[in-house]
C-alpha cells in the first residue's frame, strides 16, 4: 500500500508571501525520506503540502503538481479531505484528542468512514497499537483518556491513530522534538519498522536522527533573508552526510550555520 510521490515545480504561499519555491522531487515508497534544513526554510510547509494541510491556514495556497502514483493531489476534482485520509500525518507535539479514551483515539479515523463493528474496531485498534509499539503499555487501560499518557506514549498513540486508517504515506513533522531521548529512541525504532509498509517522510532538526532513520535526505535552504525556501539537494542519506554536492549542504551538516 506504500506509494510513490512525485512533486514537480511546487510553490507554496502564505497570503502574498511565498514560503517555498520550485520544489521538484521524488519520494520513494517503502523508505524513509528525511527533510533537513535551518529553521524557517519551509521544510514543514512543504511537508504540509503533501497532504493538503497547508491550505488549512487562512490565506495559504499552493501552486504546482504533486502526483501520488498517477493521481494529482491538487487536481480540482480532488477533495482535500480524501487526500488526508490517504496521506497520514504525525505532528510536532503529540495531540491526542483530550476528550477521548486511548481506544477512541485510535478508532477516531476509522469511525469517520462509516460504522464499523465493535470487533472489527477492536482488531484494528489492537493491530495499530502493536504496530506503534504501544500495545503492551496500554492494553490494560484502553478506556482511560489518552492525555494521561507520557509524552512519548502520546506520540506513539498519535502514530497508532494515523496508521489505523492504513494510509499510503505517513508524514512526520519533527515527531521527536518535544520528547526526551528515550522516547525519541522508541519512535526511531518504530519508524524503522514502519517503513516496511509505508512511505515515510520525516522533518527533523536533528541531523543525527536524519542520518539514523532515513534512506534518503533532502536539504532545504533559504535563498536569502525574506526569500522563499528551496530544495538544495536530495540524495541517498549516506551520500548527503559524507559527500554532498552542494557547498551549502556541507556547511549546514558540519554545523557552520543553521
Amino acid at each position: 500500500m506504500a506509494k510513490q510521490i512525485e512533486v514537480s515545480d511546487l510553490d507554496a504561499y502564505y497570503g502574498s508571501h511565498k514560503a517555498i519555491e520550485g520544489i521538484t522531487m521524488t519520494v520513494e515508497p517503502r523508505s524513509v525520506t528525511a527533510f533537513i534544513g535551518p529553521s524557517g526554510c519551509g521544510k514543514s510547509t512543504f511537508l504540509r503540502t503533501l497532504n493538503r494541510m497547508h491550505e488549512v491556514i487562512p490565506g495559504a495556497r499552493v501552486q504546482g503538481k504533486i502526483m501520488l502514483e498517477d493521481q494529482d493531489l491538487y487536481d480540482k476534482d480532488v477533495d482535500p479531505v480524501s487526500v488526508r485520509r490517504t496521506v497520514g500525518m504525525v505532528f510536532q507535539r503529540p495531540n491526542p484528542f483530550p476528550t477521548m479514551s486511548i481506544f477512541d483515539n485510535v478508532a477516531a479515523g476509522l469511525r469517520l468512514n462509516g460504522r464499523i463493528s465493535k470487533s472489527e474496531a477492536q482488531g484494528i485498534v489492537e493491530t495499530s497499537l502493536k504496530d506503534a509499539n504501544l500495545w503492551n503499555e496500554v492494553k490494560d487501560r484502553l478506556n482511560k483518556p489518552g492525555s494521561g499518557l507520557s509524552g512519548g506514549q502520546q506520540q506513539r498513540l498519535c502514530i497508532a491513530r494515523a496508521i489505523a486508517v492504513s494510509p499510503a504515506v505517513l508524514l512526520m513533522d519533527e515527531p521527536c522534538s518535544a520528547l526526551d531521548p528515550i522516547s525519541t529512541l522508541a519512535i526511531e525504532d518504530l519508524i524503522a519498522k514502519l517503513k516496511n509498509d509505508y512511505t515515510i517522510v520525516i522533518v527533523t532538526h536533528n541531523m543525527q536522527q536524519a542520518a539514523r532513520v532515513s534512506d534518503r535526505t533532502a536539504f532545504f535552504n533559504l535563498a536569502g533573508q525574506g526569500q522563499p525556501g528551496k530544495l538544495v539537494e536530495m540524495d541517498e542519506t549516506s551520500k548527503i552526510f559524507t559527500n554532498p554536492t552542494q557547498k551549502a549542504t556541507e556547511d549546514y551538516i558540519t554545523g557552520r550555520f543553521g
Binding site: K3, L68, Q71, S82, R85, T86, N113
Partner: peptide, 17 residues
C-alpha cells in the same frame, strides 16, 4: 477522483452531504 479510486478513497456522499 474517478480516475484511480485505488489511490485516493473518495469521501462518501453521506459525509459530504
Amino acid at each position: 477522483m474517478t480516475m484511480s479510486p485505488s489511490v485516493i478513497t473518495p469521501v462518501s456522499f453521506n459525509r459530504r452531504l
